[in-house]
């Protein structure tokens, strides 16, 4: 009949325990920085390049 096993959680791969005070999420900061740049550039492109000048007629009143 069936054997028994635990639900996998990937805990077996942990090589070291890192506590709160010894961890700086520098990789996260790098990723969100890239996201910040992409989003602000896209916004400026869509708002000030695609939207504001291109569209004629413009709703004015």
């Amino acid at each position: 009949m069936a054997t028994e096993q635990p639900a996998a959680d990937q805990t077996d791969d942990i090589q070291r325990e890192i506590g709160h005070d010894e961890y700086d999420p520098i990789g996260t900061l790098a990723l969100v920085f890239i996201y910040f740049i992409i989003v602000s550039m896209l916004w400026i492109f869509v708002y000030f390049v695609e939207f504001l000048p291109r569209i004629s007629p413009m709703v004015v009143f």
């Binding site: 569209i55 004629s56 007629p57 413009m58 709703v59 009143f61």
Partner: peptide
């Protein structure tokens, strides 16, 4: 919705949508 422009409004029974636009070309 005038396609390719920003003249675009909802039209709701009981309400008059009023908007003004300039057509250059």
């Amino acid at each position: 919705d005038i396609v390719g422009t920003n003249v675009n409004t909802m039209v709701i029974p009981g309400q008059i949508a009023e908007l003004t636009a300039e057509f250059e070309e």
